[in-house]
């Protein structure tokens, strides 16, 4: 203690004191608010990593700065601009294997061979979300069908979704090779993000159009329809009169023709 006291007038003392004070301040700050600091750091690296992945895998269609890019002819857009589509759009398109598209086509189909790991998709999502604010990935609770009201969801589904996706969510045709995909076997989170972001031909159903609760109700309805036992047996794809009529013509008439031939044949 005496040694310290003796050196208190040393020219370096003030500098050392300042350093110690700054160190204590920093340590105290880190102890009080450690989490945001860490998150900010990891998110910044995630955005960087995402940008690298984006440049390598997505920029050929969406442009180097995700500004969208026209094809050579200039008439149609190869990839739309991605500012403002949010992490949810990336999570939906890449998490269901729709993006990156394997070949130019009217529509990117769902593909279970997903080309990227979850971390990579999250990183690209973080990069795209950093361009402009957009919808984020929903929480588990927001998409839990058990918390939704399937009856209300059915009403909303019939007004907002059924004209494209069919009354039972079996999907249907659109113009020029595009189609509304079937909603059977789709994860609740993907249904939510599709409504939120409006992928490809689908319109956007943002939170002012369908509230988060309404979206959860629709998910509850679709889950109920999927899990419901098929009371009448074979549904023929739930496509209505087209597949039912074809079945009747081919199998019904086929059986009748077979019977007629049998009736006309003489017994051996």
């Amino acid at each position: 203690m005496n040694a310290l006291a003796a050196r208190r007038r040393h020219p370096a003392a003030i500098g050392i004191l300042l350093l110690i004070g700054l160190f204590l301040m920093g340590a105290a700050y880190a102890a009080i608010a450690p989490r945001p600091a860490e998150a900010a750091v990891s998110s910044a690296t995630q955005v960087d990593e995402g940008k690298q992945l984006f440049l390598a895998n997505c920029a050929s269609c969406h442009g180097l700065n995700a500004e969208g890019r026209a094809t050579g002819a200039g008439a149609s857009v190869a990839g739309p601009a991605l500012a403002g589509v949010g992490a949810a759009a990336v999570e939906f398109q890449m998490g269901t294997g729709r993006m990156p598209m394997r070949a130019p086509a009217a529509q990117a189909p769902r593909d279970d061979r997903i080309k990227f790991t979850e971390e990579q998709i999250t990183a690209i999502g973080a990069y795209v979300a950093s361009l402009a604010p957009g919808p984020s990935v929903p929480s588990e609770e927001a998409v839990d069908p058990a918390r939704g009201d399937a009856v209300k969801g059915g009403e909303l589904f019939r007004v907002n979704c059924a004209m494209c996706h069919n009354f039972a969510g079996a999907g249907g045709a659109l113009t020029r090779g595009k189609y509304a995909p079937a909603l059977t076997g789709v994860a609740p989170k993907d249904i939510y993000m599709a409504m939120e972001t409006g992928p490809q031909s689908m319109p956007v159903f943002n939170d002012t159009n369908l509230t988060p609760e309404a979206k959860r109700d629709i998910i509850a309805f679709l889950t109920a329809v999927n899990e419901e036992p098929k009371a009448g047996g074979f549904t023929l794809g739930s496509l209505g009169p087209v597949s039912e009529g074809m079945f009747a013509w081919i199998f019904g008439l086929g059986i009748m023709v077979g019977c007629a031939i049998w009736l006309g044949n003489k017994a051996a």
């Binding site: 007004v159 409006g198 319109p203 956007v204 943002n206 002012t208 159009n209």
Partner: peptide, 21 residues
């Protein structure tokens, strides 16, 4: 009004690309 919720729609609620019934 939104169908079937029967609630009025603010102009700011309608974002580009969305469709309201």
């Amino acid at each position: 009004m939104r169908d079937p919720e029967n609630t009025p729609i603010k102009a700011s609620d309608v974002t580009i690309g969305s469709v309201f019934h």
